[in-house]
C-alpha cells in the first residue's frame, strides 16, 4: 500500500505507507519543487499539507508533533509551535494563516 497525493496532474505516489510512523510525519519532494508534509494518525489515517512553516519560512512542518483537538488532527510546528489543522491547513493559533492541504489516500497504485 502506498501513500498518494492528489496533484493537478493526478495521483502522485510518495512512499509505502509503512515508511511513516503513526503519530509522526515525513517530508516529500513534489515534481514541481514543492515540499509536502505527510502524516499518519494513530488509526492509520493519512493527511498532507505544505511542508513550509509560514511563520519562519523553514521547511519543517513534517517534523512537528501530531495532536488532536475536538476530534480533528493537527500538527504543531517544531519551531514556534503554531498548530495547523491537518485537513484544512488552517492555522489554529492565527486566523489569518493557512497552508495548502492536499488530498491524500492510501492506495494500490504507483
Amino acid at each position: 500500500m502506498n501513500l498518494q497525493l492528489k496533484l493537478d496532474e493526478g495521483w502522485f505516489t510518495v512512499c509505502p505507507a509503512g515508511a511513516v510512523q503513526p503519530g509522526r510525519g515525513v517530508a516529500a519532494l513534489l515534481p514541481d519543487g514543492r515540499h509536502a508534509a505527510l502524516f499518519l494518525d494513530r488509526s492509520g489515517r493519512a493527511y498532507a499539507i505544505d511542508n513550509r512553516d509560514p511563520f519562519t519560512g523553514a521547511s519543517v512542518l513534517s517534523r512537528g508533533l501530531l495532536g488532536s483537538a475536538e476530534g480533528r488532527a493537527f500538527v504543531a510546528s517544531p519551531l514556534l509551535k503554531q498548530r495547523f489543522d491537518l485537513e484544512s491547513g488552517r492555522c489554529l493559533d492565527d486566523d489569518g494563516v493557512t497552508v495548502r492541504a492536499y488530498e491524500v489516500r492510501v492506495g494500490q497504485g504507483h
Binding site: P22, R24, R63, P78
Partner: peptide, 19 residues
C-alpha cells in the same frame, strides 16, 4: 516512544531557525 518526542529528541539534535 519515538512518536512522542519533540523534534529535537526525535532527531537527537537541536533544530535551528532554518530547519
Amino acid at each position: 516512544q519515538a512518536a512522542l518526542q519533540d523534534t529535537n529528541d526525535h532527531f537527537l539534535a537541536n533544530m535551528q531557525r532554518n530547519g
